[in-house]
Amino acid sequence: MGFSEADWIAIGLTLRLAVTVTILLLLLGTPIAWWLARTSSRWKGPVSALVALPLVLPPSVLGFYLLLSMGPGGPIGQLTTSLGWGTLPFTFWGLVVASLFYSLPFVVQPIQNAIEAIGERPLEVAATLRAGPWDRFFTVVLPQARPGFISAAILGFAHTVGEFGVILMIGGNIPGETRVVSVQVYDYVEMMQYDKAHWLSGGMLLFSFVVLLALYGFRHQRSHAALRMGAVQ
């Protein structure tokens, strides 16, 4: 029987959401990761904890607070209304904002680890060669931390695709706008249409496995490459 038209709309929406969120998170997460990797400020602990919160918070808690804060009475809602954007729940951009919070640690942590692994020395060397901060970032950090960025992008993307609880709380199940694949599967199960649920669930299972396989395959390759480099040195 395959996917219905509604399934394809949900799949398209999910991919659009995940791509948007991944791009935004790489842009927003990199400065945070950079700061966390290099600072010795006393704020490092609290900020790290804030970034990691979505790892431990139940999506229902996150969704509940987002629904309240993005609503007309909440701080985010009042901000977006005063900017003339209306309120965010039940919109695609509402899901984007929620996913930015939800997937933040999955993007920040791999980049932070990769930057920490570079250490001070290459940056000091670059500085003695008169490379400015931006120059150092683009010619030293970015190439050296590339595996971290790739892991971050894959994890951020995959985690957003797998999002469910938060979207259920603030989405409103609007086709083409907020009804993503995970919600569609939930609907099928609730409607007792298990055959349709199987198609989408099987698709998600396969997709997730392939993504993780790519990630681990990539890491494996890197560690071999690192070993070879070590041997040469």
Binding site: L67, G71, P72, G73, P89, L168, M169, N173, I174, D187
Partner: peptide
């Protein structure tokens, strides 16, 4: 229309002013 997965969620959407 915004649809809750059940009537409790529909209520939640209105009660929070969304």
């Amino acid at each position: 229309w915004v649809q809750g997965e059940n009537i409790s969620q529909a209520f939640q959407f209105v009660a929070t002013g969304n």
